[in-house]
Design a binder for these strands. Sequence first.
DNA 1: TAGATTGTTAATCGATTAACAATC
DNA 2: TAGATTGTTAATCGATTAACAATC
Lengths: 206, 206
Amino acid sequence: MKKYDVPDIVISRLPLYVQTLNQLLREGKSVVSSSELGERLKTTPSQIRRDLSYFGGFGKKGSGYDVISLMESLRSILNLNQIWQVALVGVGHVGMALLHYDGFGRKGFEIIAAFDQSPNVIGRKIGGIEVQDVELIEAEICQKHVDIGAITVPAENAQAVADRLVNCGIRAILNYAPVYLEVPKHVQVSNIDPVLKLQKMTYYLK
Amino acid sequence: MKKYDVPDIVISRLPLYVQTLNQLLREGKSVVSSSELGERLKTTPSQIRRDLSYFGGFGKKGSGYDVISLMESLRSILNLNQIWQVALVGVGHVGMALLHYDGFGRKGFEIIAAFDQSPNVIGRKIGGIEVQDVELIEAEICQKHVDIGAITVPAENAQAVADRLVNCGIRAILNYAPVYLEVPKHVQVSNIDPVLKLQKMTYYLK
DNA sequence: TAGATTGTTAATCGATTAACAATC
DNA sequence: TAGATTGTTAATCGATTAACAATC
């Protein structure tokens, strides 16, 4: 089965499965059935079995799935058995929160460089990373092997930053700016905008 | 057409439409067609017309949609013509970023109270809000009219905080903790977890 | 009027669910 | 062996897209 033969929506559920398997592991469970997993994730056993079947048979009929080995299989499918280097652009409050956030590192995403325009932050060391002048993006990133960019600049500057990152060979962008980024189609973009989520929820509040 | 007759996925696109109409407005456009809107949003004109038609006819055949009036209609459907009060629990780096973020306020979401456990932050004033002891959640929130909670505490504490907020009558939760929250079904939950987004993107990077 | 674009219905597409034979 | 649960196929459901009459 080729990469793009699996529906994108299936791929977006796999990290959720990994998360839940992790929880089960911490709770000391070693085997889990699709129905238990379904309960935790508020989905159907059918969906879980169907999703997994795109990649192979990971379970044992009659008993279920080995928690550790299913987790390892999914981690391997998602390419999580390596450290991914991340370059962060924009060290405002959100950028700082990301630099301090240890969840990134624990999950294998290492911020290796941070950039900002402002003399107020350039040179400061935050979460172990020294903030550099945004003008140095190319100099610092282009030769290094950086796959992922995190954009935490104001909306007006986000597209320009994206262009520069893409130019340096970045292939995935985590975008916190409330704009649609135009990127070549080989580049993944994930948008994070809490306001859009709030604005959706308020529909149901009245 | 009743609230729940409109597919949820349609509702989640409406804030995006509002966002784009806002941009068009700032660019000085006063009229827009479904195909222009579709180009901006990387979707089809059909989808946009279909989505809007759940709520009525907002356009003018032959010319398109009046930017301002379509935006106002959508804002009214989403209940965005009021200020929504938000209580924030957890003043770590993410909580602080939200307290400082002016985009919330500009979009009509006002953080009116913030809570934390730690004596290091209790009493501090951040973004104009004085952080209170988490033990005061009930005392402060229950009588006030607060509809939305933002949870930015560690994963282990998120469920307990959610329970308390729900108990105080909160009906929507913006959850930054990487766990599934169990809530009564009248309560909306939106999860924000950048790691899940990264873990999805890495699938396509190899 | 002619051209453009809507609103809506019908056709298509894709995702979810149900069912069940296979088998641990 | 009997019971449980998988992996997979077929049926169903729902969302997207195409088409077009209505009309500005």
